[in-house]
């Protein structure tokens, strides 16, 4: 029970200290979970990140589940995850409550019109980073262009794109594998 409480508190602190999402969480995780608690190693942490980026769900949640599971079994995974999301639930609920009162404020509207521009730039920066990691060959470029244009010009569900891309990846690799034999 004490172990679980410790897991919860540690991951709540990690969640509360991370600004900017999953990527920004890595240095804080290293400090809290590898250096201080020694629940995992840096190498394992990198593996969790790699898997967390390619399996469904949020990187932060996936990593928390991995480490919690490793330290204290399935229940540990669930408790660590509740810990990492707890600050978000708390802080965002409060902000959302106050935003409703300020919806008519011209100052806030101006601020958010400016903030939106910065968010586009941050998303563009994130996409450039992702591009470097994910578009490694012509097939990758083709998948990118296909899904990018289909997302913009059709209203098909993203679910279809994800399933389709998985199938294309599988078929491409299988075809290449056969050629190797």
């Amino acid at each position: 029970m004490k172990d679980l409480f410790e897991l919860f508190i540690t991951f709540a602190r990690i969640g509360g200290l991370t600004f900017g999402g999953g990527y920004a969480m890595l240095p804080i995780l290293q400090r809290e979970v590898v250096d201080i608690k020694k629940w995992t190693t840096t190498e394992e942490l990198m593996d969790y990140y790699a898997i967390g980026q390619t399996t469904p769900g949020l990187i932060a949640v996936n990593t928390a589940t991995f480490i919690g599971q490793r330290y204290r079994g399935t229940l540990g995974g669930v408790v660590a995850t509740f810990g990492v999301i707890f600050p978000s639930l708390f802080i965002i609920s409060i902000i959302a409550m106050f935003m409703n009162n300020f919806e008519d404020s011209i100052v806030l509207q101006n601020a958010f019109a400016g903030i939106r521009v910065s968010v586009y730039v941050l998303i563009l920066n994130a996409v450039i980073k992702l591009w470097k990691k994910s578009i490694v060959d012509k097939v990758g470029l083709l998948i990118f262009l296909l899904i990018f244009s289909l997302s913009i010009f059709t209203s098909l569900s993203p679910v279809l794109f994800v399933i389709g891309a998985g199938i294309i990846g599988l078929l491409t690799k299988m075809q290449r594998g056969e050629r190797l034999k």
Partner: peptide, 8 residues
């Protein structure tokens, strides 16, 4: 296949 898809 999924990585370029999520980027897109």
């Amino acid at each position: 296949g999924l990585r370029p898809a999520s980027t897109a």
